[in-house]
Design a protein around this nucleic acid. Structure first.
Lengths: 373, 373
DNA sequence: TTGAAAGCGCTAACAG
DNA sequence: CTGTTAGCGCTTTCAA
């Protein structure tokens, strides 16, 4: 009745060989070097494979060849949209090369990360693309020494021990703030998370750099408004401090869009109009940024490209013997919408929504800095 | 200089055996049946493993044992938040059992799906948890016959050929509409996608059922407002048709939150107040539903639980010889926020945000209907 | 061009 | 309790 139970013995190349009246070696050859097999034989073998529904057993292949057809991705949380899009990028480039993607979430815990890496090391994956949970990269060095290639995702490779891909958060912060300064704002608040988080520290540095480049003293042009968590609640709670600033800021840069949403809401409740009274810029350009009212000006990161690029780096590291570790850094892009406007503009905004800064590609790779080795 | 290159020959249990002065078999035993090994020997072997950094080669293990330590997930798009959370659920339960998760995106294309499944079949995964791209499940039947277990995700198992997990979309539609009817609304619009999509058809059925149960004729109580795509733009474009309805609806049920966001925006532009003039209910309860103004009443699906449950089903199918295919169906939950209010309530809403319907668990499994086999 | 045979690293059955 | 051994399915010389 139940055909499913335990599954009928899986097919092997031996079965195929018998059925096709050839030897094992021949079947293997049509699989791996088809050009070495006489067309007629090849066709017959192929026909038998299709007929039987034969699928090569990767375990045996892998055991023989020494490496598997899989790459591993270890990120903080596979359900976080930043990683999720990067994973899609990884998947698209690795699948094209016959590799399969194994994902795991470390929950940013060094403990869990170690467990994931063990599981993954057992699989003898080609390599692992990882956003490390731990500041200390020692275990990754060891992993690499044991033969698992490591690519850092959204993290800079210190001293060139690894290849890495990252987006330039300093530049992102700078873009956001420079946009406001160029619109005539002279004092802006920055709603930021803890600067222990690299991204937060970098974005802040960028904001300050923008101030400097616009000819202002960062210490007076920038009002730091730190929040414990970059959430909507955090952003909303920051509004009072923004408005209490003296002199009052006419623009706010938020370190992510969730916080920006909170700020928008807080501002509305306080009766402050955006962008008429104050401009708001977010960071991440999440799907819904465009849907808010007013629609949110934000900094977009090339997440998909980040992942695709990491995968390419891994593939390259495998195939190219002369490979040398390097970092690929991407520039974020500012997407201007209606939450930001010139500082002097006190009329109700007649500005259209969703105007992109420029027409260039959404994810341009800017710098390839060579390091190490 | 470069220790990394090509990686030093990988460690095997033979290396461990030599170093620990025991035989291969003993090392294997401490790995698989530690209780059979004398404590002293066991400790020594373990020490050597740690010292050397030995990690068991899954390929060999797998070749010997016949099955791998991995499960596969094939969904339309791994970067879609619905799947993303389900994947996290799958990951959490499978990881606990030492399995690793392989993800692939089919882009809802039967073509790509086939490719994914081939890749995955080569891996001899324990089983595949899949949201089929194709109406025709023939290839999945064949896959199962060849020994790869199959669990359907967000799809009902026709005739019981598979285990499946799904959330009851009819019930979801009913929840949304019943909420409005219970608030005194007597005519509501439904902004829905093409009913060729199973989810859309089901949600519509639920809405109509709610009307019937509230004592109305669905054909007059429900105004169908179909849109080509359940996007924000689609929702916004539907507003004119909603407002043109006669008699005018006092409530709108949207088949997803993106459409609801569009409706909200369109309504605001038309000068119609929510919920004062008209109530709006969404579907999916995406992260940002709570952040909108007004915050959006929506139907939440237990995505994480859906995935976790699928994984459990798979594990059970593997371990339990007497296993019989079945469907686990989850009930969605209505989350009431401030975009919906009683039909007669024409005062500015003083209703607090984020009031959940009830205090019960967020993802209660309601029905386990046995089918087939 | 095709066939035979030797392992890849591990597990499990069996003998010491 | 420990050691020896025969494969799991596949790739790849090497000989025919």
């Amino acid at each position: 009745m139940d055909v499913t139970a335990a599954g009928p013995r899986r097919l092997t190349i031996r079965n195929v060989a018998e059925r096709a009246q050839v030897s094992l070696g021949t079947v293997s050859n049509v699989l791996n070097r088809p050009e070495m097999v006489a067309p007629a034989t090849r066709a017959r073998v192929r026909a038998v494979m299709d007929e039987l529904g034969f699928v090569r057993n990767t375990a045996a292949h892998q055991l023989r060849m020494g490496n598997s057809r899989s790459v591993s991705v270890v990120v903080h949380d596979v359900s976080n949209s930043f990683f999720t899009e990067a994973i899609r990028g990884i998947e698209d480039v690795t699948n094209d090369n016959g590799y399969v993607v194994i994902v795991s979430s470390s929950d940013a815990s060094a403990e869990r990360e170690k467990r994931c890496l063990r599981l993954v090391e057992e699989q003898r994956v080609l390599g692992v693309i990882i956003t490390p949970a731990d500041k200390d990269l020692g275990h990754l060095v060891r992993l690499q020494e044991h033969g698992t290639r490591v690519i850092l995702l959204d993290r800079h490779g210190p001293g060139g021990g690894f290849c890495s891909v990252a987006v330039d958060d300093v530049r992102g912060g700078e873009l956001a703030a420079a946009h406001l300064f160029s619109q005539g704002h002279r004092r802006i608040a920055m709603v930021n998370g803890p600067t222990e988080i690299r991204q937060c520290a970098d974005r802040r540095r960028g904001v300050r750099r923008a101030a400097r480049r616009a000819g202002f003293d960062p210490d007076t042009a920038i009002l730091d408004v730190p929040v414990a968590a970059l959430s909507a609640a955090g952003g909303q709670g920051a509004v009072a401090r923004v408005l209490a600033g003296s002199p009052a800021p006419t623009g706010v840069v938020c370190a992510n869009d969730m916080a920006a949403m909170g700020v928008l809401r807080g501002l509305r409740e306080a009766g402050v109009r955006v962008p008429d009274d104050i401009s708001v810029v977010g960071y991440d350009d999440i799907d819904f940024a465009a849907m808010l009212s007013p629609s949110l000006t934000s900094v977009r990161q090339p997440k998909y490209e980040l992942g695709a690029s990491a995968a390419r780096l891994l593939l390259e590291e495998v195939s190219d013997a002369t490979h040398t570790h390097r970092e690929v850094r991407f520039d974020p892009e500012l997407v201007v919408r209606s939450s930001s406007a010139p500082a002097s503009d006190r009329t109700a905004s007649a500005k259209p929504d969703s105007v992109s800064t420029n027409g260039t590609s959404r994810s341009r790779r800017t710098g390839v800095s060579r390091t190490g080795a």
